[in-house]
Design a protein around this nucleic acid. Structure first.
Lengths: 136, 136
DNA sequence: CCTTGCACCTGTAGTGACTACAGGGTCTAA
DNA sequence: TTAGACCCTGTAGTCACTACAGGTGCAAGG
C-alpha cells in the first residue's frame, strides 16, 4: 500500500476528532481503539469507522465517563448487544456520581467563602484563613 | 533516644490527623512535611507541630487545594510572611477554579439527562443514547 | 526471658489518563 | 534534492496517592 496524499494519518485524525495525536496512540495501546492498517512506510492509515469511534470516546470523556466505562459502552456496541436498559443503567450511575462531585465542590466553595469573609484582604501580616486552618 | 509507650509514631499521627500512614511518608518525601526525629530503633517520633501541620494539609486537601498550592501556603507560614492579601489571592483563584468545575459538571449532567430522556430504558436493542454518541 | 504478632522501616511499582521526550524513519512541497 | 514537517518506537514523567515485598523493632502475654 503506497502513501496517498488523501490518507488519513494520525495527525489528520487528531485534528478531525479533536483528540490529541499522542492520545490516539495511547487508546490503541490500551485496546480502546483497534489497530488500523499501515502504509508501506509503517504509518497508520485510518478509516471513517475510526473517526466515528474516536469521536464517541471524546464525547463520552467530555461527559466525564472513565475509560473503563467507555470500554463497557463500546463492548456493547461491538457485540451489537446494545440495550436501552443496560446503557441507561450506566448513564444513571454516572449521573449520580456527577451529582456527588457537584455537592462536594459546593461544600468546598462554601467553606472557602466563609473563611474568606473573615479575611480583610489587606496587606496585613495576620490572616484569619491561615489561623483557622492551623487550629487543631 | 529510647522508645516510650507515649511516643507519637507514624500510625498514631495517622489516626490523630486522619491522614493515611503511607501518605505521611509520601509528604515527607516530597518535603511537604519535615523529617521528624527518630528513636533508637529508627522509628519516626512526631511532635505537636507535625500534627498541626498535617491537619492543615488535610483541611486544605479537603477544600481541593493541590499539594503545590498547599506548599505555597505553607511556605508563607514557614517564612512568617503571611499576608491576608496573598492568601486571599490564592483562595480566590481556587474558588474560581472550583466554580468552573461545578459549571462543567452541571453541563455534563444536563447533556446526560437530555440523552437519557430520549431513552425508554426498556430492554430493547436500540439505544438512542448510543445512537446520539455515535453520530459524527 | 521468650515468643508472638503488630507496627514500623526501606525502596519500588502500580493507579488513571494522558503528555513529553529521545532517537530515529518517512513524506511532501519547494 | 533537500528542508522540515510529520510519523515511528519505547520509555519516563505528571498528580496524589496506595500497595507491596522483604526485612526490623517493639510491647504484651505466657
Amino acid at each position: 500500500m503506497k502513501a496517498d496524499r488523501k490518507d488519513v494519518t494520525r495527525g489528520v485524525l487528531a485534528k478531525r476528532s479533536g483528540v490529541n495525536a499522542e492520545t490516539i496512540r495511547y487508546y490503541e495501546k490500551i485496546e480502546l481503539m483497534p489497530e488500523p492498517d499501515r502504509n508501506s512506510g509503517g504509518h497508520r492509515i485510518y478509516e471513517e469507522v475510526h473517526l466515528q469511534r474516536l469521536c464517541f470516546i471524546r464525547r463520552c470523556r467530555e461527559m466525564g465517563f472513565t475509560l473503563e466505562e467507555i470500554r463497557e459502552l463500546l463492548s456493547l456496541v461491538d457485540r451489537e448487544q446494545v440495550s436501552c436498559e443496560h446503557v441507561q443503567q450506566i448513564a444513571q450511575d454516572h449521573v449520580l456520581s456527577i451529582r456527588q462531585k457537584i455537592k462536594d465542590l459546593q461544600r468546598m466553595q462554601g467553606t472557602l467563602r466563609d473563611l474568606a469573609k473573615q479575611c480583610s484582604g489587606e496587606n496585613v501580616p495576620e490572616c484569619p484563613i491561615i489561623e483557622a486552618l492551623l487550629e487543631i
